[in-house]
Design a protein around this nucleic acid. Structure first.
Lengths: 208, 208
DNA sequence: TATTGTTAACCAACTGGTTAGTTTAACCTT
DNA sequence: AAGGTTAAACTAACCAGTTGGTTAACAATA
């Protein structure tokens, strides 16, 4: 009766646990998450969690590390650094939108982590950003355009902060904004958003 | 010996509890918050918390309700609806910045609430936004400028979403952005941000 | 003026359920 | 033989909520 023993090998206990833990932590937060529940939904004995991860905290960190590896898969590695600013912006906007729908269970984890920034985890997030070379790429392109006179002289960090928040900020605040602005067709709105943010931002910084 | 009974009326147990609870919930989240700890830091017996609020959940909701009343104090009620769009934007940007520094303990609570949107609480937040007449005022002003031909025709909701996220998004994501963009003097950056967001947004939507 | 009753505010100590983490003894596969 | 796995029982701490009472203030009664 007991579910097959045998190392039939794949689904890989380790991964099953991380997957179950991810949704548990996303749904309930660290303190609200229950190790027993993770064990059940992973179809694994609780002892296995401690065998593989030693502690709840450790499992939590493993979930986060694992997720960043996933994220790096969708990263913007192969953006031609010589491409136009407009192209970079378009790619970024699309990447944010695409990513957000693929990492739904990560969003709540990040939001909670932002609530009480924890050195360890924050470092990981910052590293992911840095490794993506997004700020570097964007900052570089913006500086050049300023020199060329195509973009008005202005603190480049303010520009980057604006573009990032227009994108990520919406993805995080969506449940709120969608209600306040009475947005019914969220899918359409988010798709149109890709063009809107590039449009507004680009015109916002361009020389008139 | 026992600390004076008598209704010597002020410090008001009720308020002391809410104040202590606010920081406890902000620091640890709902599940991480400890009623015992709230009692100690409020300098009150735990039973009093149940006497006054019945349950942890109830206390949590009381903290949120109380905070919205505080927020409405700083609200934008007296913005002249006939003032220019630029003025409205300036006022909004300033209000967001000012507010954020006064409601520090509310920020983490909101972030966590966004992580797992809860009907009851979300409704409260949306109501606060609506009551502030911010979206209405901004939407109205934008529509008029579009009609006048001063602002390019575009989904007004996309514009509002952009402006709100540039402002609130930054305040929420600050711990992250400040590190990614290596912003040392945060105070200066946030002050300069008030002008930057209005500048970028306004130019972004204006007819060329 | 004492006496009694009532009530809101308060408290120390307890209860009972929960939970992270452990242990044991066995089983399976390589 | 070893590493992965299971079910189940266990523990020690923890924690939301309760209990059974105390205290001060006030008002009605006598």
């Amino acid at each position: 009766m007991a579910a097959g023993y045998k190392n039939e090998s794949q689904p890989d206990t380790n991964e099953k646990i991380i997957l179950a833990a991810r949704t548990e932590f996303a749904d309930h937060g660290y303190d609200g998450a229950r190790v027993d529940r993770i064990a059940v939904s992973a179809g694994v004995n609780k002892a296995m969690i401690y065998y593989h991860f030693n502690s709840k905290r450790n499992l939590y960190l493993a979930v986060i590390k694992n997720h960043f590896e996933v994220i790096k898969t969708y990263a913007l590695k192969d953006v031609d650094p010589e491409t136009s600013l407009e192209n970079i912006l378009r790619i970024l906007a699309s990447t944010f939108v695409d990513m957000s729908s693929r990492i739904t269970s990560f969003k709540p984890i990040i939001l909670r982590e932002l609530a009480n920034p924890n050195r360890e985890v924050l470092k990981e997030i910052v590293a992911a950003f840095t490794e993506s070379r997004l700020p570097e790429l964007l900052g570089h392109s913006l500086s050049i355009e300023v020199q060329k006179g195509n973009v008005r002289p202005m603190d480049v960090r303010q520009m980057i902060a604006s573009f990032i928040t227009m994108n990520i900020g919406y993805l995080l605040l969506a449940p709120l904004i969608n209600r306040v602005l009475v947005i019914d067709d969220r899918e359409t709105f988010i798709q149109e958003r890709r063009e809107a943010v590039v449009d507004i931002f680009l015109n916002g910084i361009r020389t008139r």
